[in-house]
Nucleic acid binder design. Structure first.
Lengths: 334, 334
DNA sequence: TCGTTTCATCGAACCGGTTCGACAACTAAA
DNA sequence: TTTAGTTGTCGAACCGGTTCGATGAAACGA
């Protein structure tokens, strides 16, 4: 492989001149510039990333930490990963994707060896063990998901509390007094997925203010349990006229279960949920829902991170930034 | 950040001694070994990846190139990515994930700058533009998906031809004489996804040998077209007693459509498909199917790649390795 | 007891870039 | 005509590791 020295020799200049021609940090006469770019083309030279990283202390790589939980509904995660990858590339960064189960150890390995310039943590829990490691790292970090307290990192998430209120409001406006609320599976609460209770508690609080009765239950993830559970819930609550679903597995299975039971939406039951447009399309979900905008979330997170990486001195002003929930009416309520 | 020089000073030895203590390539007295490891612990030293890569010409990173097609059913891709990531880590490698649309350019950027020690190409097309770039690269490569001709790379895929034959045999044994075959969407054929016609042609060939009549049609991907298309196909072919589905979007939507039509499986229609166990669970598919084993595929691919990276001299013997299809009987045929 | 191994360690060179300071040649201002 | 400034280029140092050859000390066999 050609090195910068080969290019220099071929163009009859010094290595530093080639470097300056490449970076444009010093002026180069048009003659040598041309000889250099000819040599580069002829030799097929591409700067060695490791050497460059060593010299500049910049790798132009972002570490993306994804935690795939076994009990989780996996397709949702891709929606976050892709926009992050795209946004990173637009800013000139590549993505080192880490999916290890032992997050903290993997994180210190990656940050300690300076493989990346910045870190994105996906699916952050209330008490996330990766967070202290990230805070101790040299590299700036950004979280998707809200931990109990985050200092020194930027935090992005959908405003799940507002989302819960919006959906309760939506049903309240239509006169519903008895609703079923299906929340994420129990494991999500246990492992500290804050979005679960942020949504639930805000919804319950708003409902109680209206005097709406809410039957709240954790959903399950695995078939055939999902269908059975939906049926049990509906059997147990014939008085309910509406349903709020904050659970991917449940909402994906809902159309077929309701159809089996002969329940017409919205005539006999109003249904609202919270999921991304892509997810809804994937499962052909005909339900009015709060859009979770994983693409917007991922892009904003990367943009914030890039700002920190480019400008590491402006340390202050770390903030939690909530994406505003937007409801998409698909006519599943009345 | 602590460097190896800091550790050396702290332990009162030279840099090379620290390096040898770390790698174990020369013997070190137990006394200095201990002083060194104490110093490492105290200073929190982790070797700089860039410097190490520069010195050893090894990055311990594998480049994973994933092409997400817009018209594609995305959740399928995750199933490949995760096992690859896991297998790589087990071998000591991290994953640089590249999702750029312009595959060839991205590939030459990554290989040219020596960011990775090896390359995995997912979703390889018959005439894949990334392939010549990969073949010209210094790093070994492995493909998932079969190109028209691959030299200098290892190729892995499910044996789609055998899969097609297995499913036709399965229906033939049960006496079916008229079957519907739903293949991947037209775009897959157009872009050269060889698995599409490998499966279809083998199935058609086998069926014609048996004298089975086959109505073959490309599926669509986007709702609500999917449901409509399934209905049209069934309306148009009342004589068909069985259905082979090689199309993720179609098979995901099939249970609800068949239910709507009041078609009982297998009493009124036998259904077989080809999808992974995970995919089947995700969509609660009750159909007998050939298991696509993306985990096995991904793992074998990485293992082959690691072998090449560790042992670059043994160049010979590049081979196409087909994973043997295994049918999972879920009782959807009679 | 002396030459020969073995063991443990060191210094220097190298991997392939970037960047600082120096300097010659030329231009512009005094 | 001298001085000051600009432009284009070079050499050397540096980033943080690894590895080769050399070397002194200790252990060994004759």
């Amino acid at each position: 492989m050609a090195t910068i020295g080969d290019v220099a020799k071929h163009a009859g200049v010094s290595r530093s001149t080639v470097s300056y021609a490449l970076s444009g940090k010093r002026s180069i006469s048009s003659g040598t510039r041309e000889r250099i770019s000819d040599a580069i083309a002829e030799l097929g030279f591409t700067p060695n990333a490791g050497a460059r990283a060593l010299a500049t202390s910049q790798t132009m790589v972002i570490g993306l930490f994804v935690h795939f939980y076994e009990d989780e509904f996996s397709p949702a995660m891709v929606q976050y990963v892709l926009p992050i990858s795209d946004a990173a590339r637009e800013a000139g960064y590549d993505i080192l994707m880490v999916t290890e189960t032992d997050g903290p150890q993997a994180l210190s390995r990656i940050t300690g060896s300076d493989m990346v310039d910045g870190i994105v943590l996906l699916n952050v829990a209330h008490r996330d063990e990766r967070l202290p490691v990230l805070q101790a790292a040299r590299q700036p970090g950004v979280l998707v998901g809200i931990p109990d307290k985050a200092e020194g990192v930027d935090v992005f998430d959908l405003d799940f509390e507002e989302s819960g209120r919006i959906l309760v409001d939506h049903l309240h406006e239509r006169g519903h007094r008895d609703i079923i609320l299906i929340t994420p599976q129990q494991h999500v609460f246990e492992r500290g997925g804050a979005y679960a209770w942020r949504f639930r508690d805000a919804a319950l609080e708003r409902a109680s203010r209206y005097g709406i009765r809410v039957f709240s239950v954790d959903g399950v993830t695995q078939q055939p349990g999902v269908n059975r559970q939906i049926n049990e819930i509906l059997d147990g609550h014939p008085e309910a006229t509406a349903m709020i679903v904050h659970n991917d597995a449940i909402i994906a299975a809902l159309p077929s279960v309701l159809h089996d039971r002969g329940v017409r939406v919205p005539d006999q039951l109003s249904v609202v949920g919270i999921f991304s447009e892509d997810f809804g399309r994937l499962f052909s979900l005909p339900y009015t829902a709060v859009e979770t905008s994983p693409d917007k979330l991922g892009r904003s997170a990367v943009q914030a991170l890039v700002r920190r990486m480019v400008n590491p001195d402006t340390a202050g002003e770390y903030a939690v930034q909530l994406v505003e929930p937007r409801i998409t009416d698909r006519g599943s309520t009345q």
